[in-house]
Simulated scan of single mutants.
Amino acid sequence: MLTRKQHELICFINDRLGETGVSPSFEEMKEALELKSKSGVHRLISALEERGFLRRLPNRARALEVIRMPERTEPKRPAAPRAPARAIPEPANDVVEVPLHGRIAAGVPIEAIEGTSTLSVPAALLGSGEHYALEVSGDSMVEAGILDGDYALIRRQEVARDGEIVVALVDEAEATLKYFRREGAMIRLDPANRAYDPQRYAPAQVRVQGKLTGLLRRYD
């Protein structure tokens, strides 16, 4: 048997998933159950997990899956014929936290900055592999649709094909976001802005640190 609050919470989560496909936030659950703190929500969710009613999806924020529902023994409305049970949709718009490693130049190279911040990214924007994010600084990639202040989503990899947009570490000190091309015995890093010139380096000077897979943009 579930407690009244546990029963209310599992019903609230299940109804929200059925309506939107997204599990409610802890703040929404706290307000819906008229609890004083989010710690009460955490305790209820843990109890429902232990009893096999809920499951948390790993590496995703606000992602809960209802495994089974208790019988609703105290309906708030007069009994009526129930529609056939429908499958619970997979949570949509799941969010993944990826490392945010400072700012990267989309103009001339700047010093590579390592940070400990994270950025919340819709899982649909990420494919396979390990990802991180960089804040774009500069305007040399505007013709590729990459603007100052955008967040570049990067998949970690050490190789690149001609024409791919990559994070290139130059002389182990400076990082830049550019098109990657081979030009004879040299590596050429091309901007996407005719106001900037290509940059040419010996292969030993350039180390690929990842490939651009997506962008996030804020609108103030």
Rank of each mutant, 00 (worst) to 15 (best):
L125R: 08
G145W: 07
G163L: 08
R72H: 10
V121T: 10
L153H: 02
I146C: 03
A47L: 06
H101M: 11
I154V: 15
G163Y: 10
R51T: 05
A32K: 04
R188T: 12
H131G: 08
R161E: 14
D171T: 09
T176Q: 00
T213S: 06
H101Y: 09
P78Y: 10
A63E: 01
P198L: 08
P122C: 05
A152K: 08
E65M: 11
G18D: 10
G210T: 08
A32R: 04
D150Q: 11
A173T: 12
L54E: 01
L54R: 02
I88M: 15
K5T: 03
D197Q: 13
L134H: 03
A32Y: 05
P91S: 07
A85R: 14
G107Y: 00
T176N: 01
S140M: 07
K36E: 13
T20M: 06
A124H: 13
L44M: 08
G149F: 12
Q205D: 07
E158K: 10
E31K: 15
V136M: 09
E65G: 00
A124R: 15
L212R: 02
Q157P: 03
V166R: 01
A32M: 02
E74P: 00
C11S: 11
I67T: 12
D162N: 15
A185W: 04
R182T: 08
D171A: 13
E172D: 13
T213R: 11
L147A: 13
R161V: 04
R207N: 10
R155M: 15
R194Y: 02
V108I: 06
A85T: 04
G107F: 01
E130A: 10
I10P: 03
